[in-house]
Design a protein around this nucleic acid. Structure first.
Lengths: 139, 139
DNA sequence: CAGTATCCTCATTGATACTG
DNA sequence: CAGTATCAATGAGGATACTG
């Protein structure tokens, strides 16, 4: 019994490939490409914020909720569940009452979060140039 | 008359900052944070594909449509317009009939596209580890 | 505290048809 | 060829109320 997809088996046969090489070969347009889903989760509205917050420190649910202003309990919960299912976030529920749950990054989650932050930082560092280019482009 | 936002004026007063420093200071949760929009455009479903395709070479509309299988004319058009408005993509309409329009990356668009590809590549390179972690997490 | 459940709204996407 | 217009379907996201 295997959970490996057709996609994965093909990758193994062909050796390590990247999104860009897949694109060059025209294979990555498969909607089932798992990387697209991961990218979506990692760059989702609240996913970015959760990852960057957890990169600084572990947080419990209500800490994240306070830190990430504007997020509803529903969306925070949903985002955390998705990232946990992807293996990026680890959830630890302390067996106490009242409930206390801590969220932290897994090793790969930390790597992913650093990539996300790197990308987000690039945008922030260049936001001036970008906004400037927008005005020129519109003129 | 100015198009500068409150956000931009604050940034200027405070010097260069990054998303992560903004997060630490709790400022980036502003829904009006322009960086969030840019991130969204850059990592959008078709935006990623368009940027990577244009990183290889300039393309005309129908070439992109063929290359990026599964994209509708509407979504391709919309994606290109958004990226053009952001100043990442340059549109050149040849004054001929039948129409011919070429799309290319601007200098900053090229930088952005390389960042996007770098991120996408990280995911593809690590997709094996990620999928493996998922199974463990689910068990 | 740390969520779930339900309902609802509106933005995104897609299919189809049409145009300069 | 390179799009736009229109409408239908889908889904993300939010408000509120409730629970272990």
């Amino acid at each position: 019994m295997t959970n490996r997809t057709q996609f994965e088996r093909e990758r193994e046969r062909e050796g390590e490939t990247t999104l860009s090489t897949l694109l060059r070969r025209g294979e990555m347009f498969d909607t089932n490409c798992p990387g697209r889903e991961i990218l979506k989760h990692l760059t989702s509205r609240w996913g970015v914020l959760v990852l960057i917050a957890l990169l600084e420190d572990d947080h419990r649910f209500s800490d994240l909720r306070r830190k990430i202003g504007g997020v509803s309990e529903k969306m925070l919960s949903q985002t955390l569940q998705t990232l946990e299912a992807d293996g990026f976030v680890k959830r630890f529920s302390h067996p106490v009452v009242p409930p206390r749950v801590d969220y932290s990054l897994t090793p790969i989650g930390r790597e992913a979060a650093m990539k996300v932050r790197e990308f987000a930082d690039w945008i922030e560092i260049n936001i001036g140039r970008i906004m400037n280019g927008k005005r020129v482009a519109e003129a």
